[in-house]
Amino acid sequence: MNINGILVPIVTPFDNNGNVDAQKLTTLVEAFIDKGVAGIVACGTTGEYYTFSAAERELVLTTIAEAAKNKAAKNKGAENKGAENKGAENKGAENKVTLIAGINSLSTDHSIELAAQAKALGYDGLMLSAPPYSLPEQEGVIAHFEKVADASELPIIMYNFPARVGVAIEFDTVAHLAKHPNIVGVKESSGDFSHALRMLQANFDDFEVVCGCDDQPVDFFFWGAKSWIAGAANVFPAEQVALFNATQQGDWDKAKQIMSEIYPAIHSMESGNYNQKAKAGCLKGSMDIGSVRVPLTDMPEDEKAEFLALLSK
């Protein structure tokens, strides 16, 4: 499973009646692929997965998978045609983005069920947090991840976001779980870069420390991270792809310039109403994808206007 680059935890468009808008979701997937992202994460935090019925979850997962597959086929066809016109041999690039399904749940066994669904629908990997609300000790966190990893054939990226989940995945726990062949990385969203740096310095075998903090990507990439799963990629997909590419080419001045340009909006998102701003600012505010669902509420119009103004600077 390739996770190098920018992966978008995609927002979920809702229509005026609050229903999932599958047509706009398809358009979003295609737009993100055109912007050069390496992957799509379905049913993540910015996707508001916790509001879905079982039928809606299946609809979202299916729509994203089919949109990505169809887009890859179109791109492949265009490349083949271009190669034929030039009389050149096509090397067979797959034009395939990585598809990851979030499988967070209060119940470990339910996460296993969601993992099986993701595999059946053609996903490449899974993203999983520690179980929220139950506040397990680290032994319980290990048991949770190992039980899901033992039950599923798909690789798992752990998701460390204690501010939302209520429990952290500590360094020693990561070191233990990184040895599991089915656990391939951790999305580090604690905001504690010292914790991230310790993991990056550990150089775990066949294991990626993924940037999960929208305001820290240059730091992560400087120390060797190869991936950024960023809710703000809903707003800045092209810019974040360009930032990643600059770091991989060693052009740190360009990376810092891009980060400086998008930082005011990212700082605004991190300061409050994150999901609301990810949706209002989708594709730099060029696409109306509807409101957030309760228990979230729409932000005030003046705050929305102030945020959108940051996208045009």
Results as ranks from 00 to 15, higher is better:
residue 220 F to M: 11
residue 22 A to C: 10
residue 139 E to W: 03
residue 59 L to Y: 04
residue 214 D to G: 12
residue 218 V to T: 13
residue 211 C to H: 08
residue 124 D to R: 05
residue 43 C to R: 01
residue 52 F to C: 10
residue 67 A to L: 07
residue 78 A to H: 04
residue 175 A to M: 10
residue 288 D to N: 15
residue 184 V to T: 14
residue 88 A to D: 13
residue 152 S to L: 01
residue 158 M to G: 12
residue 85 N to P: 01
residue 277 K to A: 08
residue 177 L to A: 11
residue 274 Y to I: 05
residue 144 H to N: 15
residue 272 G to C: 09
residue 289 I to W: 10
residue 246 A to S: 15
residue 1 M to G: 13
residue 7 L to E: 07
residue 101 A to E: 01
residue 234 N to L: 11
residue 195 H to L: 07
residue 11 V to I: 14
residue 20 V to I: 15
residue 84 E to G: 06
residue 304 K to Q: 14
residue 74 K to M: 07
residue 240 Q to T: 11
residue 202 A to K: 13
residue 92 G to T: 10
residue 133 Y to K: 00
residue 56 E to F: 07
residue 197 L to P: 00
residue 196 A to T: 08
residue 65 A to P: 00
residue 192 D to K: 03
residue 65 A to L: 02
residue 216 Q to L: 15
residue 22 A to R: 12
residue 167 V to L: 05
residue 222 F to C: 01
residue 135 L to W: 02
residue 148 V to I: 08
residue 262 I to K: 02
residue 119 K to G: 14
residue 290 G to W: 06
residue 289 I to T: 09
residue 88 A to Y: 02
residue 305 A to W: 04
residue 217 P to W: 03
residue 235 V to Y: 11
residue 308 L to C: 01
residue 18 G to R: 02
residue 160 N to C: 08
residue 295 P to I: 05
residue 23 Q to F: 07
residue 133 Y to H: 12
residue 138 Q to T: 04
residue 67 A to P: 03
residue 27 T to Y: 10
residue 118 A to F: 11
residue 14 F to T: 07
residue 310 L to M: 13
residue 130 A to D: 06
residue 91 K to N: 07
residue 239 E to S: 11
residue 293 R to I: 04
residue 11 V to C: 15
residue 127 M to N: 07
residue 291 S to M: 05
residue 262 I to S: 04
residue 187 K to N: 09
